[in-house]
Nucleic acid binder design. Structure first.
Length: 803
DNA sequence: AATTATACTTTTTTT
DNA sequence: AAGTATAATT
């Protein structure tokens, strides 16, 4: 059986010559890859070779002649995952991967709607609204309907609309319970009308409209159900209701001829319930598709034993799991290190030292990652790394196509393509300023509203100076459209940047240099897009569908150039390179990582770390209220999701894992006193090594320590460092809030201090947050972590200091 | 029209 | 604290 063994490091080994694809797989992976064409659910634990199984399965199906490229659909959530799949597949098989429907849910929907735009009642070059565009579109609707933005908060309305669509509900389908919902539904309807009028769709609309088209057109449905004999789904636990229904629609009813859905997922890594993901889809899938093949991939090729034990132990505290345990043959490895710090500042200093040490001992910086629950936590760590001159890279934040200057440029391009796009119109009609003020626009929007036409179509009704300026703007756009006709994408963008005045505008701005750089980068992105998407000479010559006898098949292209340039299903006509590029920009917002390329420590939220792995991982801020986050403590499901999040965080580490918490933390400009996370109680003691004395108490008296140190004229750092094992370097003066020192100095009598760790018979461990009153009136506010923060009368409550 | 003041918020995120 | 969004000022 040795021929099925994977390398200990789990690396894919490409056998030389004509040897089998399957050579590098372990028995479970092999079983999954070679399953018959029947519905299957693969429970793939973290680091168990999930992507390899997916890609090898596709390759195997084709190599054994069970399916042609046109018969495969593989769906992912992110562009990154889709690209990785394509790359790995390309390395395995000398096949034209472009013929396969491999992409994100939204990318595939886009492809589908481009091919069937007429049936979908869309303009051929419909454009896609990103979340920002959608928000401003909703704002316009709310304004137009004269609704109060206090009662109808645009963000919440947007959320309502997206939520409804993801439940498959059109305005008429939404159940009306009260006046508020009634109004919301009206906004929803008006928003839909507006989108339709402007020829734009939002992300949820891509999914819903595709679903409805399939549902309502039998011929179309038959065709695609026949065509996609194999549908593979990645990260199945993250699917929402609509996506699941969508999959069922493409898969069709259970059948004899071997159509099959191959779903890969991990219920323990479901961390997106807050945006509509339904883990229950996994159980539903198992039942509704009568899944006969459930395979668990539990062999982990990433982490050492102590790390996996910690993960397993922690996640076993969740209920309703499908049940899975990771195991490794790599041995226990190093213990999981636990660090307690007096403050977030100290935590960052310790982390910095530790990371430097790792790097000095030979670990590349990019193999060190710092994870936190919320973005706000990155600041202290960033400043520690920055001051020490350690290169680092923060994930998250603005993505390329979301930058203001880039969005402005795109808006001009969109207007060239479709002047009725009111969102884009409003974005740039007066940017750079050209004398079109709020007053003129108010008028214009009034006219447009009453006539039910676009702003562009209504502008001629405006007279006076504003009207003249509008006319000049229209002339600019019209002229751009005329002069760029037939030019290459690059030339179009360059001309637009000049003619619009964007370049000139940013040249005079003091902070404009970066922006101009980004605009130049936009030209490069367009150039790359053209090359990559094959928008050159032969892009139009497309093979025609050879699949199945469906009534529509004659005109359906099986292989198309790529997601963004799908031809019309009947005529084969494709949209212009410009329209395609705009779609691309909306569908793939680009990198959000700065300073790429350099060897840098990686900082990110636990959410963004999903799917990644590192030699060393620091999980910071493991405190009650932060991780698990206080907003998720109200219900059991919320806490379980936090636990899964912690599970994801732990399983990112290959060799070394640090868990760290701090007694105090600056949050929203206030110092918070925290108790260590309950997750520490859910980890196996044997796998942990405390770098700081255990149970010495959260609240081991930060304020008091500081005061003592301060009186001695030394820094807190050296004091805390004394007697502790961590490599402590005296830091610069820690930013201790003055009122904390004050509070510590003021207290007397009852012997308690703010920041003091205490024990209560009923509530357990806690930290004193506030002290008030004296004598019999003395009361303390104590933060008990999972029991919340309580006010206690000190004459009654029995509080024992824990030090 | 551009600059400046004030109010407000703040879990996690992809498409 | 810090950033954004709206209001008020020049």
């Amino acid at each position: 059986m040795t021929e099925f063994e994977a390398g200990a490091d789990g690396a894919v080994r490409h056998p030389a010559g004509g040897e089998s694809l399957l050579r590098a797989l372990n028995p479970e992976q092999l079983a999954a890859v070679t399953l018959p064409a029947e519905p299957a659910l693969i429970l793939a634990g973290a680091g168990s070779g999930k992507t390899r199984v997916l890609t090898t399965r596709i390759a195997w199906l084709m190599q054994t002649g069970q399916v042609s490229p046109g018969g495969v659909m593989a769906v992912t959530f992110t562009n990154k995952a889709a690209k990785e799949m394509l790359t790995r597949l390309g390395a395995m098989l000398p096949v034209n991967v472009r013929g396969m429907w491999i992409g994100t849910f939204h990318g595939l929907c886009n492809r589908f709607l481009r091919a069937h735009w007429k049936m979908a009642a869309l303009p051929q070059s419909f454009q896609i609204l990103d979340s920002g565009d959608q928000l401003s579109a909703v704002k316009r609707v709310i304004k137009a309907m004269n609704l109060d933005e206090e009662r109808f908060v645009p963000k919440q309305v947007t959320w309502f609309i997206a939520g409804s669509k993801e439940e498959g509900l059109r305005p008429k389908d939404v159940e009306i319970r009260d006046g508020q919902t009634q109004k919301l539904v009206e906004v929803y309807q008006a928003y839909e009308d507006q989108c339709q009028r402007e020829g734009v769709v939002d992300f949820a609309e891509l999914m819903l409209r595709t679903f409805e088209l399939m549902r309502d057109h039998a011929a179309l449905r038959d065709h695609y159900q026949r065509r996609f004999r194999h549908i593979l789904v990645d990260e199945f636990q993250d699917t929402n209701r609509l996506q699941y229904a969508w999959l069922k629609m493409f898969a069709g009813p259970p059948r004899e001829d071997g159509g099959a859905v191959f779903a890969v997922g991990d219920d323990d890594q479901s961390i997106y319930a807050f945006r509509g993901a339904q883990v229950s889809n996994m159980a539903d899938f198992e039942r509704e598709f009568r899944v006969k093949h459930l395979i668990k991939l539990e062999r982990n090729y990433r982490s050492f034993g102590n790390i996996l034990d910690s993960a397993n132990h922690l996640i076993s505290h969740n209920t309703h799991r499908l049940g899975k345990n990771l195991r490794t043959e790599a041995g226990p490895g190093e213990p999981v290190r636990v660090q307690e710090s007096a403050s977030d500042y100290n935590e960052a200093q310790w982390l910095l030292e530790e990371a430097q040490q790792l790097h000095r001992s030979g670990m590349p910086r990019r193999e060190i990652s710092v994870l936190y629950r919320s973005n706000a936590q990155s600041r202290v760590i960033e400043s520690a790394l920055f001051n020490a001159g350690v290169p680092y890279r923060v994930y998250g934040g603005l993505r390329f196509f979301e930058r203001a200057e880039v969005k402005h440029a795109l808006a001009y391009l969109r207007l060239i393509e479709n002047p009725n796009d009111d969102t884009s119109y409003l974005r740039v009609v007066n940017f750079p300023t050209r004398g079109i003020g709020a007053r003129t626009l108010e008028q214009l929007q009034d006219v447009a509203r009453t006539s039910g036409r676009s702003l562009w179509q209504s502008a001629s009704a405006i007279s006076g100076k504003g009207g003249a300026n509008l006319a000049a703007f229209h002339a600019l756009i019209d002229k751009l459209r005329a002069t760029t006709h037939g030019l290459t994408l690059r030339e179009i963008i360059e001309q637009m940047l000049q003619a619009s005045g964007l370049i000139d505008f940013y040249r005079t701005e003091k902070e404009g240099a970066d922006r101009i750089e980004n605009l130049e980068e936009l030209v490069n992105a367009a150039e790359a897009f053209v090359t990559q998407e094959g928008f050159g000479k032969d892009a139009v010559a497309l093979p025609v569908d050879e699949q199945g006898p469906g009534t529509l098949s004659a005109g359906l292209p099986a292989a198309v150039a790529d997601v963004d340039v799908t031809p019309d299903a009947e005529t084969g006509e494709i949209i212009s390179p410009l329209a395609a590029f705009l779609t691309h920009a909306a569908l793939e917002a680009g990198d959000n990582q700065a300073q790429a390329g350099q060897d840098a420590v990686q900082l990110m939220t636990v959410h963004s770390a999903k799917g990644l792995e590192f030699d060393a991982v620091f999980i910071t801020g493991l405190e009650e209220g932060l991780f698990p986050h206080e907003n998720s403590l109200s219900d059991a499901d919320g806490l379980e999701e936090e636990r899964r999040l912690m599970y994801v965080a732990i399983t990112r580490a290959r060799q070394r894992l640090y868990l760290s918490f701090s007694q105090t933390r600056m949050l929203h400009g206030q110092t918070r006193y925290n108790v260590k996370s309950r997750f520490f109680d859910e980890l196996p003691d044997g796998a942990l090594k405390w770098l700081t004395p255990r149970n010495q108490g959260f609240g081991s008296g930060y304020a008091r320590d500081y005061q003592a140190a301060w009186q001695r004229g030394s820094g807190l750092g050296s004091m805390v460092g004394a007697g502790r094992q961590s490599a402590w370097q005296p830091p610069a003066a820690p930013p201790v809030p003055a009122r904390m020192v004050e509070a510590a100095a003021k207290q007397a009598g009852h012997g308690l201090r703010v920041g003091q760790g205490v024990f209560h018979n009923k509530f357990g461990e806690g930290v004193v947050v506030t002290l008030e009153g004296t004598g019999a009136d003395a009361r303390a506010q104590v933060h008990f972590g999972r029991h919340g923060t309580k006010w206690l009368a000190l004459s009654v409550a029995k509080l024992t200091p824990t030090e």
